[in-house]
C-alpha cells in the first residue's frame, strides 16, 4: 500500500470552532488507489475532515499536502486542489435551474476551460454509465433522490479528480435507493479510484474499505483493515460503536 504514491495528506491538524476543538492533532494520508472509510459517532468530525481536505474549511494548526505540495491559504493553491479533489455531499447540491447535463458540464467548462464538445461527450458517457442517459435534459426536481445523487457523482467525476470524497452520500435516501448509489461507489472502487468515504452503512464499509478509520471526539481511535476493524475491533470505544449497529435477538419472558 505505501509503495503507491501518496495523494493527499492532512498532517497534525487542529480545527476549532470558537473554543471547541472539533479535530485535535489529526493526521491521515491517502495513497493512490486506496479506499479509506471513515466511521464514527455523529458529530465526531468526519465531515470536517473531508471539508478540510477540499479546502472548504480553514484550520488552526497543521497542514494539508497534495502530492507532497503544501496547500496554503492562497487562492490559487486551494483552487488547484479543489479541481483534483472531487466532493459529493449528503444533500446532492445540484444546481436547481440547470439541466442534468448542464450540472455536469459547468465546472469542466468554466473551471477547467475544456473543449465543449469533448466535455459533452464525456458527460453523456458518464451519465450512461450510471444509467441516466435519458435524464440529460431533465431538471434536478424531476429526479428521485437516488438519481440526483448519481448525477452528483457524475458531476464530480467529470472533473477527472484524483481523489473523491463522499460525505454520507446515502444518508438522505430512502432504503431502496441506497443500493443504486452504493453500487456506483463499488464500481468506482473496483476501477481503482482513490476515495475517502464517510458512511453509516457498515456492511458497505466492510465491503469497500481497504482501510477503516474510526474517529471519536475529534481524534483517531482506531485504524485497521476492514476485517481487522469490523471483526476484531481493538478498542473498547470501537466495540461499543459497532455494537450500536447490531441487535440482539429479543428474548421473550415466557421463553426464559
Amino acid at each position: 500500500m505505501s509503495k503507491k504514491e501518496e495523494i493527499i495528506r492532512v498532517d497534525h491538524i487542529t480545527k476549532r470552532y470558537d473554543e471547541n476543538a472539533v479535530l485535535d492533532d489529526f493526521s491521515l494520508s491517502v495513497h493512490e488507489g486506496e479506499v479509506v472509510v471513515i466511521v464514527g459517532p455523529s458529530g465526531c468530525g468526519k465531515s470536517t475532515i473531508l471539508r478540510i481536505m477540499n479546502g472548504l474549511e480553514p484550520i488552526q494548526k497543521g497542514e494539508v499536502t497534495y502530492r507532497g505540495e503544501k496547500v496554503d491559504g492562497k487562492l490559487g493553491s486551494i483552487t488547484r486542489i479543489r479541481e483534483k479533489v472531487g466532493m459529493v455531499f449528503q444533500s446532492y447540491e445540484l444546481f436547481p435551474h440547470k439541466t442534468i447535463l448542464q450540472n455536469v458540464m459547468l465546472a469542466p467548462l468554466l473551471v477547467q476551460k475544456r473543449d465543449r464538445k469533448e466535455v459533452k461527450e464525456e458527460a453523456l458517457q458518464l451519465l450512461a454509465r450510471v444509467g441516466l442517459s435519458e435524464k440529460k435534459n431533465a431538471y434536478p426536481r424531476q429526479l428521485s433522490g437516488g438519481q440526483k445523487q448519481r448525477v452528483a457523482i457524475v458531476r464530480a467525476l467529470a472533473m477527472h479528480p484524483e481523489v473523491l470524497l463522499f460525505d454520507e452520500v446515502t444518508a438522505a435516501l430512502d432504503p431502496e435507493m441506497v443500493r443504486e448509489v452504493l453500487d456506483v461507489l463499488l464500481s468506482l472502487a473496483k476501477e481503482g479510484k482513490t476515495m475517502v468515504i464517510v458512511t453509516h452503512e457498515m456492511s458497505f464499509a466492510k465491503a469497500v474499505a481497504d482501510r477503516v478509520i474510526f474517529l471519536d471526539g475529534g481524534h483517531l481511535e482506531e485504524e485497521g483493515t476492514a476485517s481487522e476493524f469490523f471483526d476484531h475491533p481493538k478498542t473498547e470505544r470501537a466495540k461499543q460503536f459497532l455494537h450500536t449497529f447490531t441487535y440482539d435477538k429479543v428474548e421473550r419472558e415466557e421463553e426464559r
Partner: peptide
C-alpha cells in the same frame, strides 16, 4: 442555497 454555492466552490469555481 448555501450548499449549492459550496458545491461550486468545491469544484474549484472562482
Amino acid at each position: 442555497d448555501k450548499g449549492v454555492i459550496e458545491a461550486a466552490f468545491s469544484m474549484g469555481a472562482s
